[in-house]
Amino acid sequence: MNKNNTAESIPNPSRRRFLARSGAAAVCAGALSAGLLSATAWAAKAVGEQASATLLRMARDIYPHDTLEDKYYSQVLTPLAKKAEQDAALQTLLKEGVAELDKRSHQRFGKPYLEVAVESDRVQILRAIEDGAFFQRLKGDLMMGIYNNPELWPRFGYGGSAWQHGGYINRGYDQIDWV
């Protein structure tokens, strides 16, 4: 996949502006993109718009694949939020988790997590809470949702189940052109 992480690691003013704008857009459910809209609409009922946008940003920071559309992250967050509507403990975990994240962001950078523009700054905040239940719940669900998602396997160059195609014995198991 293509990478464009350098844009984020350099504190570039226009990049900051873009991110701040995308955050603001998410907060007011603006129509920045259909993907982002659907990604935040999901969780509003359970945790609110701000929190849902924060969770999406956090999800993209945990496993940052810049070329993956938001919908793949929201496919993980949506069932989690749906579950939280029925599961008070989970709802508390998510709400308090986001509140804690914002608290730490305010202390460190004077603004909520969503508005911290530089990825490495946000990562600092996440590293401090990575052993906690909130972070681990999100990480675990994301790991399964991103890397165990057959729809995404072709994008990562992984073949998945092979027996029904007769394996690779006649499908290039021995093909390599650079050694």
């Binding site: 992480n5 990825e119 590293r127």
Partner: peptide, 21 residues
């Protein structure tokens, strides 16, 4: 496979972030 590689490349609570991705 990719699913297990994601779990074992840097296992445990700190296995996340841009380098891993």
């Amino acid at each position: 496979g990719l699913p297990f590689m994601s779990a074992f490349l840097n296992p445990g609570s700190s296995g996340w972030g841009r380098e891993l991705a």
